[in-house]
Design a protein around this nucleic acid. Structure first.
Lengths: 216, 216
DNA sequence: CGAGCCTTTGAAGGGCATCAAGGACCGTGG
DNA sequence: CCACGGTCCTTGATGCCCTTCAAAGGCTCG
């Protein structure tokens, strides 16, 4: 019935799921856990393109050839749903509904990449960090991962810095400002948002319009 | 036979094709001409998310609802192929091949947004401008728009500045540096790349791996 | 208990934003 | 015919946000 889905794959924290430069015959959707998708420039600097949360798709950007231009790394233990890239065409032929969903997810992700571009281009450091923490908090909350007022956020500060185009040092100091202001607290792998309103104001985000990635 | 394509739409330079905040029932692919896709933050700053060239898709990011979070403006006269968003599902059901292409284009665009994010996050001003000029030159050349050593580039310096997250002033000075160095010259709506090799070196781009958006 | 990883804090310098103003070009109207 | 406003490109000066350099403290693990 469902020949497209190949298998589930469990990876541990720190594992490399996809590696840039290599070609992959597989696509993944995240079932659980969190990770980062990044690429490395010729000068050695690393850019985290986005964080991966349950429901996200990885590997489609590689195109048909499967030649990866980015890497994916697990920041926590992850469970991935593995698809066979070679059967993608088969899927479109036989399962229009699932093809539609796939495209939909891809379009939504593209939308969010646009938001990220706007952040990197137009927001200063404080706004960027506030924006990122708010966004991730909203997303993880919507996924039902809010427990005792906080959500799991297993990344390192260096990951966030590389995602926002900031230095580690300044990212650290900026997170500190948000903590001191009582807006958000990120420590020991968990994120607590204390003042959602103020955080959104800082991040130049209209709370009414926050989209948490409706999946259908 | 092809009920999905609704019409062709001709717009003049400066026209607004899609407007953020409004909802659109249409999707577009660019047949000819060039444009910009941008969004505006709450502080009034504008981010150009990408430039639109022939073959590009616009409007899918709006998702199913069609609620636009970005605007599209024509920087030159454009001819657009108009599709009916409401019939998207129909397309997936009846024309797997074209659905596949649609998804493919979307994935490729997503890939390039990732590259843009890397530029904004990790490249300095000179590298960013070099990267942008090189990338647009390669793309337009591949489209067969190279004439007498130059390609049409109808954008304003302000557009490029808003795309790269730089101020207009600094963008101008940086373009000047590339001109003085004899690497690239962008004037009067046309871009000439004199030293492709050096430009790529500056932009931290591996020329061997430049992808010019293979469409299939 | 030392090595490695991550976080935190201080100090100094530079790349880029911002402010300011002038020049070139164009279409409009007196 | 030329003054005029508008748009866009260009150039100079000042200041600050953020990067880089440097180092120390907490934690885990072999």
């Amino acid at each position: 019935m469902n020949r497209f889905k190949v298998a589930e794959r469990h990876v541990e924290r720190g594992a490399t799921v996809l590696k840039e430069g290599e070609s992959s015959s597989e696509l993944y959707t995240v079932l659980s856990g969190q990770g980062i998708r990044y690429m490395t420039l010729e000068n050695g600097r690393r850019q985290v393109i986005n964080f991966l949360f349950p429901g996200d798709l990885a590997g489609l950007q590689g195109g048909l050839t499967g030649e990866m231009s980015h890497s994916v790394e697990a920041s926590s233990p992850m469970v991935l749903c593995v698809f066979d890239r070679a059967r993608l065409w088969e899927l479109f032929r036989n399962q229009p509904e699932r093809s539609y969903d796939l495209t939909w997810i891809s379009a939504v992700q593209e939308h969010f990449l646009g938001e990220t571009i706007a952040s990197l281009g137009q927001r200063d450091a404080l706004q960027r960090v506030a924006w990122a923490l708010l966004r991730m908090h909203e997303r993880l909350s919507a996924l039902g991962l809010l427990e005792a007022g906080s959500v799991p956020l297993p990344f390192r500060q260096q990951d966030l810095a590389d995602a926002l185009g900031l230095s580690l040092v300044h990212t650290n100091k900026t997170i500190g400002k948000l903590r001191d202001a009582g807006f958000a607290n990120w420590a020991e792998g968990r994120l607590t948002v204390t003042d959602r309103r103020q955080l959104a104001k800082l991040a130049l985000v209209d709370l009414e319009r926050v989209e948490v990635r409706p999946l259908m």
